[in-house]
Design a binder for these strands. Structure first.
Lengths: 118, 118
DNA sequence: CCAATTGTTCAATAACTTTTGAACTAAGGG
DNA sequence: CCCTTAGTTCAAAAGTTATTGAACAATTGG
């Protein structure tokens, strides 16, 4: 486990909401949700912010209990704490992600990908 | 209507989440939800913060599209924009309020009320 | 009309949060 | 062993949000 994570029952509603109330972090969570189960390394999010800044935002998500980060070699593998969040705040994550998916103004991971030619 | 309110489709997810990520405002929303349909005047929330500070928080809620404020006489009548929020972010408000209801650490309106004697 | 009630505005300050760059650590590959 | 890759830490700067008190405005009851 390596890094400090709050226990499930220590996850605080206002803190989770405040942490999700940032477009960069919302984009990270949205992407994690879209790849549910697949652990992501920090590098995946490099088109959202600088390495240093990502370190900061990812720490906020982890400290709030929204994500889990595990050190593996020189990487951090990041996953959504979906089960814990669902247990603690039923329905919250689903509605946030559905809303985020419908928001054209949110930054998105991989937004600048090349079009698949016809 | 009197005061500036965003149109339903202008309500922004990160802004709503950030606005709800404050214990005082969450307590206001929770109370409005518990009295659904009954417009509240600002004074109802005086045990959460000072008059000036309430004015600030209530403006944030209104500007985010979470509440509706109408000037009536010398009062402001405040209601939750439940229909608009439900339309825009289905399920979000319900899950936030359910989570807030289960949070013993949140401040609450009327928390210092006298017990009903047996 | 006067005074009280309700709430706003303003400017100041305090307290956070976000962003940055430079320096650093730790693990792996060659 | 050295070099690269992946990410962290730190301190500074910038930006934002929250809180306060004093002054103000609008409405209404007496």
């Amino acid at each position: 486990m390596s890094l400090p994570h709050p226990a499930t029952d220590q996850i605080s509603l206002p803190i989770v909401l405040a942490v999700l109330g940032d477009p960069t972090r919302l984009a990270i969570v949205r992407y994690l949700a879209s790849k549910e189960g697949v652990p992501m390394s920090c590098g995946k999010f490099l088109d959202l912010a600088s390495k240093t800044n990502l370190s900061y935002h990812l720490a906020k998500l982890r400290e709030a209990g929204v994500t889990h980060s595990e050190a593996v070699g020189t990487s951090r593998l990041i996953t959504l704490r979906r089960d814990d969040l669902d247990k603690r705040f039923p329905g919250l994550l689903d509605s946030v992600i559905a809303a985020a998916d419908g928001d054209p103004d949110l930054p998105a991971v991989g937004a600048s990908e090349v079009e698949v030619p016809a």
